[in-house]
Design a protein around this nucleic acid. Structure first.
Length: 368
DNA sequence: AAGACGGGGTG
DNA sequence: CACCCAGTCTT
């Protein structure tokens, strides 16, 4: 473990970014980006709607993962008007498998807001964009700089890592204070010239060269100005507070299937898997079973209810134990979150709004 | 400031 | 298994 600069030195250094260093970083990085950037589908457009979609899909998600979702989504909803007119179920269906489903609901809501109050036009500034639902500092800066050439900075996980290393900065990028520190650093570096490419270059460098483990400093276009590399701290930065390990929570899935059909429950739009369909899930944890029973939706009780609801015996009912990692203390029994039940075709139609967990349960229980 | 919110790639 | 990904919202 190598030495790190004291915070006091860091703040002085931030004040002291020379104009010439800023210009050199900008020129070298944008030049590198012109040659080495990955070919991503949203790099061929300046349409703020498409940029917006790509940025939201990429939140906490690797860009390679988002690409096929982006292509299908844009084909289904080519404009913000198409999205605004679309039923939410369809939007959630195209999001199925991506995770963080609240993003899809906020995307849909904001599309409606834009079409109602701005006739589908996007605000052109970072400050205005940030007022929209689901658009935070990062996404607002990305849209403003890429689609509208505003010299607005962005700070994502890549930018935190790259800046922490270049300036040998040990601020904690996972706390609000540390994040604010890196945002002001990024603000100090933003250029009037090609701000969108500068932002993307910074992120691209983090994604492909200045990687979390074993950064490829030999391939880095700005390594000669990298303080972290010079003093040997690069691979130890950024400093990130540890996140608690998600706890696997067990659920019993009630799989009721008839000829070509399966019973799915519609979840509340709040919380885990909000708005998705799934085989009814019941908490299987001893500590929570009493709460589930109190809610009147215990598994054994539900078995009888489902038998009665289906009213004939062409349906088979099975229970499948599944686990889902959950942050922190296990949530309320999932049975309390259902708002409706539906008989759905099996195999599931394309665009079924289900989570990956539900897909796995159904595949395992009903395959063959 | 801390926690919730998915799923998958990688060493 | 640990880490973390083109973050945002809620409490």
């Amino acid at each position: 473990m190598s030495t790190r600069a004291p915070a006091s030195i860091i703040s002085e250094k931030k004040q002291g970014i020379s104009a010439s260093l800023k210009d050199r970083l900008h020129a070298r990085l944008v030049e590198w980006f012109d040659v080495h950037q990955r070919k991503l589908p949203w790099r061929t457009t300046k349409d703020p709607y498409a940029i917006w979609l790509s940025e939201v899909m990429a939140q906490q998600t690797r860009v390679e993962t988002a690409i096929p979702y982006y292509e299908k989504f844009l084909a289904a909803y080519p404009t913000v008007h198409h999205l605004a007119e679309a039923p939410l179920e369809g939007v959630l269906g195209l999001w199925s498998g991506l995770g963080y489903y609240r993003r899809a609901r906020m995307l849909h809501r904001t599309a409606g807001d834009l079409c109602r109050s701005h006739s589908g036009r996007f605000p052109r500034t970072k400050v205005e964009l940030e007022t929209l639902s689901g658009i935070g500092p990062y996404t607002a800066g990305a849209i403003a700089s890429i689609a509208f050439r505003e010299p607005a900075s962005v700070v994502d996980g890549n930018v935190v890592r790259v800046l922490a290393r270049i300036f040998n900065d040990d601020a904690d990028g996972r706390t609000p204070a540390g994040l604010g520190h890196f945002r002001s650093l990024a603000d100090a570096l933003i250029h009037d010239d090609r701000p969108g490419d500068w932002n993307q270059a910074l992120m691209e460098l983090g994604a492909t060269v200045c990687t979390p483990r074993e950064p490829a400093c030999g391939a880095c276009p700005v390594s000669e100005w990298c303080e972290g590399r010079r003093v040997g701290t690069a691979s130890d930065l950024p400093r990130l507070a540890k996140k608690p390990k998600p706890i696997p929570v067990a659920y019993d899935a009630l799989v009721a299937a008839g000829p070509g059909r399966v019973l799915l429950a519609e979840r509340s739009h709040e919380g885990l898997f909000g708005g998705l369909l799934e085989p009814p899930l019941f908490d299987a944890n001893p500590t929570l079973s009493e709460a589930a029973f109190t809610a009147g939706m215990s598994l054994t009780g539900a078995l009888g209810t489902v038998h009665h609801t289906l009213s004939h015996r062409k349906f088979s009912v099975a229970v499948h134990r599944a686990t889902q990692p959950v942050d922190g203390v296990p949530a309320l029994p999932m049975s309390s979150a259902y708002v409706a039940f539906h008989l759905v075709a099996w195999p599931l139609p394309e665009g079924a709004r289900v989570s990956t967990l539900a897909r796995k349960i159904l595949a395992f229980s009903l395959e063959t």
